[in-house]
Each structure stands twice: as C-alpha cells, then as structure tokens.
Design a protein around this nucleic acid. Structure first.
Lengths: 140, 140
DNA sequence: TGCAAACTCTACTAAATCGATAGGATAATA
DNA sequence: TATTATCCTATCGATTTAGTAGAGTTTGCA
C-alpha cells in the first residue's frame, strides 16, 4: 500500500507539472488544491527538494517549483525517495537489498522468485513513466 | 512491502505443496524448516484454514494439510487473505475498494491512473500463478 | 478411562510506523 | 525593518506489526 506521504508527494508533483510556466507555488496553494494537510505537505516537499527534484524560493512570491530534469524523471525515482523500496521483499530490492534472516538460500525460495517477477513488472511501468507522461496520460 | 505474515504464510503453503503425499504436518515441523516463530505461524495457519485453504487434524499424528483445491488456487487469493488488498491505493482495489477523501474525481487523478496500470500488471502475475506453479518454478 | 499430542482461541504487549501538529529559525523581498 | 514563506526539530496519538502467554478443545492410543 502506498503511504499518504507518497500519494501526496506525487499529487503535488503532478500539480506543479500541470501548470503553465514554472513560477514558484506556495505550499498553501497546493495543499488547498489537492486537499492535503499543509504542515504534512511541507515536510513532503522539503524531502523532494533535498532529493533534488524541486527548487524553493523563500519570502514573498516564493514557493516550490520543478527543477528542469524533474519532468523527465521516472516515477520510480520519486517513489524511492518518498516511499522507499519498490520491491515487495527486501531480498529482491535493487536499491535497498537486504538478506532475509529466515531464508538460507534465495534461489530455493518460491517467494523470492515470484517477487522478482512482480518487481520487474512494476518497475517496467514506474521506470518508463516520467513525470511528464504522468500528467499527460490523464488529459486523454 | 509484504508483511512477515504473508511471507511466512506463502512459505508454509509452499512447504506443504512440495511434500509428497498429503499427510498432516505439525506446526512445529514447518516452523523449524522455514525458520518461523512457532506461535506466530500458528495464527497464520489458522487464518488459512478458516479461509478454506488448509485442513487441520488435532491430536497425535495431527497437523495441517492442503485441501485439494489449494494447488490450483492463484497466489492472489492467498495474498488477499493474508495481506489484504493487492492494489497500492484503495481507490483502484477490485476487492477492497474505497474512495479517496482528498480526490474529487478519480478520472482526473494521475496517481489513480498509474496505480491501475501497476495493479493490472501485478495481478497478471498473481492471478495466473497457482500454488502448483509457485513451487514448480523453483525446481528449475 | 485417562493421558498426551496437537490444534484453537482470546488476550496482551513491545516496538515501529504513520500522519500529522507545534513552534521557532532562517532567508528573501519590499 | 517588517512581512512573507520556506526550513527544521521535536513531539504526539493512533494504528499496525510481530510476536508471546496461556488456557481450552479435540483426537488418538494404551
């Protein structure tokens, strides 16, 4: 299940991506438009900024805006920053790998094999869908 | 992320599915073979029994065993019993649908559209892989 | 009949995570 | 210098997770 953090983060990104121009937008504007708690959104946007996907400007006329590369960034990247691993078990994670304590041999684990398939299928979507695609699709 | 409950449940099912014959197997045997806390596994197997996938026999020589239909049951069914929804957001769940409070129109939500794709991809694996397939694959 | 084996069931708990909220610090603008 | 808006740390209540404890029930067997 997607956490609210990730869902809100993606919705905020899509809000920024849909705008014409790239003027800074205040947190309060996004939070009202997308029905997200303002304080919660604050921390989410900060995370995305630290990860290098958003720029921020302080003071009057300030707010958050997309950095250039963000439109071509796959959703998978945002997902990993907000939610963490895409894989359903750490032992099949590409970016957050961890061995299972209970499993002596991954190659003999049915769960492992199946979850590799699920991971690859999910990745095929999340890695090929960029933020630009993400907002394009919904206009159809 | 898969909970331990689901992972352990699937491992126990696969343990039973790999056995020759279908004699009852004690919880303690499975828990040792798969390195799962016995008490925890107890409750998991009980859940699977109540859902109609396992039979149980009490007393000496007792234990859990697969019911006939279980070998042809898709992993998706076990998953739903153990973990809950397969979808990443309730608003795209087929079996556990819930409307998002924050979302006025699902058709205009980019997250919604994307998660439908992810769901369908994941389902295409979990619905077509039966318990029988599940243990067959790993022998290759 | 009586004992032991093994599942059944309820209740409880420690720890972690989630979804926020509070409030002050910092920086930019006018 | 006053205002605006992000930055940052800390805290908190509710929920979920991953168990644990312990008594109850059914079955097989001597």
């Amino acid at each position: 299940m997607l956490s609210r953090k990730t869902k809100y983060g993606l919705k905020a990104l899509s809000y920024l991506a849909k705008r014409e121009g790239n003027e800074p937008v205040q947190i309060s504007v996004i939070s009202e438009a997308e029905n997200i708690s303002q304080k919660f959104l604050e921390s989410i946007l900060l995370t995305l900024k630290k990860a290098g996907y958003l720029g921020a400007k302080k003071g009057k006329g300030g707010g958050y805006y997309l950095l250039e590369k963000s439109m071509d960034t796959p959703i998978a990247s945002f997902y990993r920053v907000l939610e963490g691993p895409i894989a359903m078990v750490p032992c099949v994670s590409l970016n957050f790998y961890e061995k299972c304590e209970d499993c002596p041999d991954e190659d003999l684990c049915s769960v492992h094999s199946l979850m590799i398939q699920v991971r690859d299928n999910t990745l095929s979507i999340l890695e090929t869908t960029t933020l630009s695609d993400f907002v394009k699709n919904q206009l159809i």
